[in-house]
């Protein structure tokens, strides 16, 4: 039987230090979801084209399904649970999504939120065209995007 070497990685996830030994081929999305039980990060395509698995690595949006967990060694990650994991205390962007009905099934939502966090930091007052541009890499099959755009406009106003 072939033996696969395990690698030990150390990283921070939502501000908490994590150390795990894993197979080098384990996807970062699987690592977050199944090793750390952070199931808010969703997987829609596993080939980098829907954006559902978007998380932050050192503050920048990345797609966890096309990275290996070992590549996150030494980095700081933030998942949707890192925005707020408490349904009673929503992050302002999460609250704006609720306000404008920017989610239906909610499956794509964590990816949209995590795409938008760094975008809004860099563009605190974006116009609709800029918002539609940054969102064009994330797929939502339920909402038709309009209410997501409105959520971003609302969050930027606040």
């Amino acid at each position: 039987m072939q033996v696969i070497d395990l690698y030990t990685i150390r990283l921070t996830v939502n501000g908490v230090a994590v150390e795990r030994s894993i197979e080098p081929r384990m996807l970062l999305s699987d690592f977050l979801r199944h090793e750390l039980n952070l199931t808010g990060t969703h997987v829609g395509c596993e080939h980098g084209s829907c954006g559902a698995c978007t998380i932050l690595m050192d503050g920048a949006a990345v797609r966890a399904c096309i990275m290996f967990a070992v590549q996150a060694d030494g980095h700081a990650l933030t998942t949707v649970e890192g925005l707020s994991a408490d349904p009673d205390k929503l992050h302002p962007l999460q609250a704006a999504f609720r306000e404008t009905h920017a989610l239906q099934c909610g499956y794509c939502t964590p990816g949209f939120l995590m795409t938008l966090v760094p975008f809004l930091e860099e563009n605190p007052q974006p116009d609709e065209a800029a918002i539609r541009d940054v969102l064009s890499g994330n797929i939502c099959r339920c909402t038709g995007y309009q209410n997501i755009v409105d959520a971003v406009l609302l969050a930027a106003r606040k």
Binding site: H34, T39, V43, V80, L90
Partner: peptide, 16 residues
Amino acid sequence: DPRLLTGQALFTDDVH
């Protein structure tokens, strides 16, 4: 919405 927005809603693949 609050559960969906905070990653606390259970989807089938979340069952372990």
